Simulated scan of single mutants.
Amino acid sequence: MMLSVSFRHRIGNSRINADFAAPNGVTALFGRSGAGKTTIVQAVAGLLRPEYGRIALDDTVLSDSDGGHFLPPHRRAIGYVFQDARLFPHLTVSQNLLYGRWFSRRSQLAPPDQITRMLGISHLMQRRPAALSGGERQRVALGRAILSNPRMLLLDEPLAALDEARKTEILPYLERLRDDLGLPILYVSHSAAEIARLATTIVLVDQGRVIASGEAASMLSDPAMAPYLGARQTGAILSVTLAAQEADGLARVDSKAGPLWLSCLDRPVGTPLRLRIMAQDVMIALQRPADISALNVLPATITDLRLDEDGVLVRLDAGGDPLLSRITRRSAERLDLRPGKAVHAVLKAVSVAPGNIGAASLCPTPPR
């Protein structure tokens, strides 16, 4: 299924110019606060009628200014989850979940008990929203949207109102939605950590305009994204597979460029994972280092160097996967770094910390 968006709209003195496509998976609308992300989502939902342009979900035209066509929100079969859960306070969790089904004429995506198990809310059915934590309320809101049997989901900064503990709690459930439902999901966020873990496609929005879009790993490793991510959040994604749980308590994962070792992962061998490797946690060596404590060293080739106020951002090709390294200008000059040069990327331990691993959890106790 594919969402196609191409429209222009004016709100006061602001103009929105959106042109992108969102396939199955999570398409993240990413940008600073006030960039226009929520306005784009509202146009897709039918809460706003664009002045010019067209929005379509596969062969269903949602809005077309040339033909004067505008499908009202209740006929779009789109599930919308806001920053705040917006549950009915007088209804139980079970009644909130079933509310959307009363208005749906489409066949179910999955049985209700399967959805509640997926979201980990089966034990909450008789509670009312006031008795739920923030993370539980958001999971119930997700369940209600899914049980309306939508053709796609719109998630408008669903974690923005939660503290870090609740965000950590709910992220694995969002990963399950991405991997198990087979729906296009439009996800609004200005959190680099969230989109690095969840997104399959990224649409960069700045001052009301879509200025770039593409596959998530490629976008996040593009040095041009650095001003929007911030120096400490600039990095890349490695797609790896859990290959072995080794006797010393470490887990070996296989990347395109070679093996990496992490703290023990509580997942079956063969599980695909996404590692977020921060640019500040990647050192560059001309020769493979010997007699050092770092276990994770990958051969790579320099593809690009970009100067900025924080030094030099070096883009690397590691067996076909992109990596970023942030170093000083003095180091770049001393090593005579240039595109095409073969080097080794030395990954510091922090680069594979628990918060940067998608679709996985650490073992309950650290390895001895």
Rank of each mutant, 00 (worst) to 15 (best):
G79V: 06
V5G: 05
S213A: 11
V282N: 03
D254A: 14
L337K: 06
D281P: 02
S94Q: 12
P72C: 09
D180L: 12
T301K: 04
G31C: 11
L124W: 09
A45L: 13
S255V: 10
L97R: 03
S255I: 07
P289E: 14
S65M: 05
I284Y: 10
R326Y: 09
A145Y: 02
L154T: 14
D310G: 00
G31A: 11
K348Q: 12
A45T: 13
L147W: 11
D248M: 00
H123G: 01
L109P: 11
K341A: 00
P367N: 03
L124V: 12
E136F: 08
A199W: 03
G270S: 03
R151E: 14
F30L: 13
A77Y: 11
A43H: 01
V5W: 00
L47E: 15
L29T: 03
P129H: 04
P299Q: 01
A193F: 00
I302H: 01
F30T: 10
L132M: 09
T39F: 10
Q126V: 01
M125K: 09
S255M: 10
R76P: 15
S4F: 01
R54S: 07
Q114N: 12
Q207D: 11
V314R: 06
A130I: 03
P184R: 13
A85I: 06
S213F: 02
A110E: 13
A342L: 00
L238W: 12
S4W: 00
W102P: 00
L260T: 06
S94T: 00
R329H: 08
C363V: 07
R329V: 05
V352H: 02
I78D: 06
A193W: 03
S331V: 08
R176D: 15
A161F: 09
E51R: 12
D84M: 09
L142V: 07
H190S: 08
F88D: 06
L183G: 12
P23Q: 05
N17K: 04
F70D: 15
V203E: 05
G53Q: 09
D19H: 09
S218T: 10
G120K: 00
K167Q: 15
N17S: 13
E309D: 15
Q233K: 08
G355E: 14
L262V: 09
H9P: 11
L316E: 01
P50C: 10
L242G: 11
S325Y: 07
L71G: 11
Q83P: 10
D180H: 12
A193D: 07
R368P: 15
D310R: 13
L273R: 09
Q245C: 08
M219F: 02
